[in-house]
Write a protein that binds this DNA or RNA. Sequence first.
DNA 1: TACTTTTGCTTGCAATATGAAAGCAATATT
DNA 2: AATATTGCTTTCATATTGCAAGCAAAAGTA
Lengths: 146, 146
Amino acid sequence: MNVEFRCKCPISSALDVIGDKWSLLIIRDMLFANKKTFTDFSTSEESIASNILSSRLKLLEEVQIIRKSKVEGNLKSNIYTLTEKGLNLIPVIAEITIWSDENIRGLNPIMVDVDRENLKNNKQTVIDGIRQGYLKSIGSLYGNSQ
Amino acid sequence: MNVEFRCKCPISSALDVIGDKWSLLIIRDMLFANKKTFTDFSTSEESIASNILSSRLKLLEEVQIIRKSKVEGNLKSNIYTLTEKGLNLIPVIAEITIWSDENIRGLNPIMVDVDRENLKNNKQTVIDGIRQGYLKSIGSLYGNSQ
DNA sequence: TACTTTTGCTTGCAATATGAAAGCAATATT
DNA sequence: AATATTGCTTTCATATTGCAAGCAAAAGTA
């Protein structure tokens, strides 16, 4: 594995890590669909192949965007959760959503609706809400227990 | 060519268009390095291959993120410029820059410094400035002439 | 006007990444 | 004890990316 950086540019360096067709969708599913396990992610609407999913989870863990753990009483299922570094991607995902809604809809007519006005007018509040909601949903794992 | 959309999700649809390692770097070079021609882009620090550059320019033009034109007196050079749809990506690039600066620097120590405080504290002003600066730089081509 | 250089690509071909399907060991469920 | 599920890995096919060379049209130079 091991990420390779092409050069010293922050934008290209970010793309070296998350500039593929799957990483941000895995993070989206964590944030908005409460997905946590390998099987959870492999049942996304876009059907990622299991070998690609495996390699992406490894890379995201390596760069500490996600962490891998177990829950008590289940020795089998791995639980993948977002770290602070991963949560910090929420604003990126928010801007991509706004851009897509406003600029790509014409090319992909089946695209679902987004409450863009709320997102645009209360951006920080929405972002904070997503973050807090996520932390709450994994709270029993990391929040007040350890 | 022709973009294929995997499903109805706005995030995955955006990634179907700009979710690769090169598109946003081409746009970055337009915005911050005043690049406009095929040769301009092929001399980026990351050295994109000419066939990849060619296919990316075609796709970006097809989805109307950029437009292709000529300038008077030069029948040869194609001039690529950002459309409104392309300019609307500035907030995405801004958030990626902030995230990278704060979360990837530890993995890529040679990353250049960013005036993150200014960008974070005056985000909208910085974004507007980038947009206006770009429009001014191509003004003689599209602004007040045609 | 002839020659050279530049521009904006295209064309092979090799390397790498992605994708589909099957397989598999460990754990969990019945 | 038998079956199903989970979290992968492996294999092989296909698609994407990358490198190097080539090339025609236009532009610059002598």
